[in-house]
Design a protein around this nucleic acid. Structure first.
Length: 244
DNA sequence: CCAGACGTTGTT
DNA sequence: GTCTGG
DNA sequence: CCAGACGTTGTT
DNA sequence: GTCTGG
């Protein structure tokens, strides 16, 4: 779950949404944000909220290397506060991840999984609760990564999937980001979205390939009939050679 | 004491 | 880094 | 999350 | 089947 989302808010819109005072880094708009990409997150800096570009896929600070199995894109909200991989980040490095919405794949017994786009009914951006971590020497070469917290799905999308990202409303953003919020108060924020907040519709299978990243990914698509296959358009890079 | 794990997802 | 298992 | 690779030798 | 890359 939550292994893909869209974030296409222009920098200025994001500055206003989060009341960022300082400058913000340049970042690409993404209709198909995927793990290992550098994506904008909001966290507390020295002088209040800041936007930073972090790599999606949290690497614990004690990991021996950046590659391998140490790439944690989600953290279960039910257990993150105690897990060795997340505990430190849960206590001291919480973040918000802005999104237009997220993609969720619905398994359909036979045939391909059907991707859906899950968005707020009111059209507002959706903000995920997240944790971030730093790996490597502080002097330089350190990389910063993040993971998105998940909860049980609510009944708005339970027919599609059984987990969903934790979505925080604006009035909870300060509490989540503040370094002084008590552990119990933090855990109280990590609940499934209230009923009626979100809605979902099927989208094209083109979203399956991260090579596809365009506005058409958000367009509603016909849900394919049960058990019937649908062609997957093959992404093709310019300059690709035919070898045989 | 040292060695080894440390996570999520989904699927069966 | 910190905890668990042997 | 899904898609795509998964290998060696020798030669340029 | 399993791992890596995006």
């Amino acid at each position: 779950m939550c292994g893909r989302y869209a974030i296409t808010l222009p920098p200025e819109a994001m500055r206003q949404l989060f009341a960022i005072r300082g400058g913000i880094p340049a970042f690409a708009l993404r209709f198909n944000a995927a793990p290992t990409m550098d994506l904008p997150v909001v966290r507390m800096g020295d002088v209040g909220r800041e936007i930073a570009l972090l790599r999606w896929g949290l690497v614990p600070s004690w990991a021996k290397s950046l590659d391998g199995g140490s790439l944690l894109i989600n953290a279960r909200s039910e257990t993150a506060a105690e897990k060795p991989s997340f505990r430190g980040a849960f206590a001291r490095r919480r973040a918000l991840v802005p999104a237009n919405g997220f993609y969720e794949w619905q398994a359909r017994g036979k045939g391909p999984k059907v991707p859906h786009f899950v968005h707020r009914r009111d059209g507002a951006p959706m903000v995920f609760a997240a944790l971030w971590e730093r790996w490597g020497p502080p002097e330089g070469g350190a990389i910063e990564t993040f993971a998105i917290l998940t909860s049980e799905a609510n009944s708005d999308i339970a027919a599609i999937h059984h987990r969903m990202p934790v979505i925080l409303p604006p009035e909870q953003w300060d509490l989540w980001l503040s370094p002084s919020t008590a552990l119990g108060a933090l855990e109280a924020l990590l609940t499934p979205a209230p009923l009626g907040l979100v809605s979902a519709y099927p989208v094209s299978l083109r979203v399956n390939s991260v090579a596809n990243d365009d506005p058409a990914l958000l367009a509603p698509a016909e849900a394919p009939p049960e058990g019937e296959a649908q062609a997957v358009p093959a992404p093709r890079r310019p300059g690709q050679l035919d070898l045989f």
